[in-house]
C-alpha cells in the first residue's frame, strides 16, 4: 500500500495529463483576458452574445464532427451539405407559401425537410463508408463536391432568397432569444449537452471511442462496428440540419458560397478541443471551446486595429498547429 502510493505522489506535480485536459480551457481564458485588455467592449454582453451566436453554426456541426472523428472517420461534406440543405429548405418554403400562406406551419415543414435531408445525407455517407468500404475521406470529398454542385445548380449560379413574408415569420429563430440569450446559443448549448451525454454516458459513445481506438478490438468485443460508424455519420447529418435551421433566418438566402470552409472550421474546433484526429478519444466540451476560440480570434482582431483582420486565418492556423503540438507533447510524456 505504502509502496503503491509513492508513484502517484511522484506523478501528480508533473501535471502532464492535466495540461491536456485543461489546455483548451486555459487557452480560452487567455484569449478572454487578451480580448478584455485590447478593448473593454469585448466583455459587453452584446459582444459576447454576438460571438456565441456566430459560433453556433460551426459549433453545432463540430459537435457532430466530434463523433465522426472519435470513431476514426472524417466528414468533409458538412459545409456543402449545409449549403444544399439551406437551398432546398428555402425552395420548399417558397413553394409552400402560396398554398399554405406565410406562417409557422411552413417553417415547420421547412425544418422537417432540413432534418430529413441531413439524416439521409449522413446515411449515404455512412453507408458508403461502411458497406461500400471506401475511406471516409474519399467518400465525403466526393459528396462535398456533389452537394456544393447541387446547391449551385438549384440557385442557378446565383442566390436563393426566402420569400420576404416568410423571413418575417422565421426571423426570431435567429434574432430572438430567451432571458437575453439568443436562440442559437440556447440550441448550441443544448446540442453540446446532449452530445456530451451521448458520448460520455451511453453505450453508443463508448463504442465510438472503442472503434476509434482499435476497430479490431471492437469487432472482437461483439460491437457492430459498421452500425456505430453509420450512426455517427447520421448524427453528423442531423447536426448540420440543426445548424441550417438556425442559419437560414439569419440571411434568408443560400448560394454557392454558403457554408464554404465550414468543414475545416468544424474539424479545427474538434482538434483544438483535444479530440484526436486518428480517433479513439473524443471531447465534446473541448470542441465547444475550440469553436468559441476560433470566433473569438476573429472578434478580437475586429476590435483591435493593431493586426489586420485578413490575418485571421493565419492566427487560426497557428493555433491549430500549436494545439496538436501540445497534445503530442503530453501524449509522448505518458
Amino acid at each position: 500500500m505504502t509502496q503503491s502510493s509513492m508513484p502517484e505522489l511522484a506523478r501528480k506535480p508533473s501535471a502532464g495529463f492535466d495540461l491536456k485536459l485543461w489546455g483548451p480551457f486555459l487557452a480560452l481564458a487567455g484569449l478572454i483576458v487578451l480580448g478584455t485588455l485590447v478593448n473593454p467592449v469585448f466583455l459587453s454582453p452584446a459582444n459576447l452574445a454576438n460571438v456565441l451566436t456566430r459560433t453556433a453554426f460551426t459549433g453545432i456541426i463540430a459537435v457532430g464532427a466530434t463523433f465522426v472523428i472519435t470513431t476514426g472517420g472524417i466528414d468533409l461534406s458538412v459545409g456543402s451539405l449545409a449549403a444544399f440543405t439551406a437551398g432546398v429548405m428555402i425552395v420548399v418554403m417558397n413553394a409552400l407559401v402560396g398554398p399554405m400562406g406565410a406562417g409557422w406551419p411552413v417553417v415547420l415543414v421547412g425544418m422537417l425537410v432540413a432534418v430529413g435531408l441531413g439524416l439521409v445525407a449522413g446515411l449515404v455517407n455512412g453507408l458508403l463508408v461502411t458497406k461500400g468500404r471506401i475511406e471516409a475521406f474519399i467518400v465525403t470529398l466526393g459528396t462535398m463536391g456533389i452537394f456544393r454542385s447541387l446547391v449551385t445548380y438549384l440557385a442557378d449560379g446565383g442566390t436563393l432568397s426566402l420569400n420576404s413574408g416568410m423571413r418575417a415569420v422565421y426571423r426570431p429563430v435567429y434574432y430572438g432569444g430567451l432571458f437575453g440569450i439568443p436562440t442559437p446559443v440556447w440550441v448550441f448549448a443544448a446540442v453540446a449537452l446532449i452530445g456530451a451525454v451521448i458520448l460520455y454516458r451511453t453505450r453508443f459513445g463508448r463504442y465510438c471511442a472503442a472503434i476509434g481506438s482499435n476497430d479490431e478490438v471492437a469487432r472482437y468485443s461483439a460491437i457492430d462496428v459498421d452500425r456505430v460508424r453509420l450512426l455517427a455519420f447520421v448524427l453528423q447529418g442531423l447536426c448540420v440540419a440543426i445548424a441550417v435551421v438556425l442559419y437560414v433566418p439569419r440571411l434568408g438566402s443560400a448560394s454557392a458560397t454558403t457554408g464554404v470552409l465550414w468543414e475545416l472550421e468544424a474539424i479545427a474546433a474538434v482538434i483544438i478541443g483535444g479530440t484526436m484526429l486518428k480517433g479513439g478519444h473524443g471531447r465534446i466540451w473541448g470542441t465547444v471551446v475550440g469553436a468559441v476560440m476560433l470566433t473569438l480570434i476573429d472578434n478580437i482582431l475586429n476590435l483591435t486595429g493593431a493586426i489586420s483582420v485578413y490575418l485571421n486565418g493565419a492566427i487560426q492556423g497557428a493555433i491549430i498547429i500549436v494545439a496538436v503540438l501540445l497534445q503530442r507533447g503530453t501524449a509522448s510524456k505518458r
Binding site: 463508448r206 471511442a209 472503442a210 482499435n214 479490431e216 478490438v217 472482437y220 468485443s221 479513439g280 478519444h281
Partner: peptide, 21 residues
C-alpha cells in the same frame, strides 16, 4: 494487444466492453 484490449484506455472500459449491455 491487436484484438483483445484497448491499450490506450483504462481498465474499466476494457473490462466491460464485451458485455456493455
Amino acid at each position: 494487444k491487436g484484438k483483445g484490449l484497448l491499450v490506450g484506455k483504462g481498465l474499466r472500459p476494457n473490462l466491460t466492453l464485451l458485455a456493455l449491455e
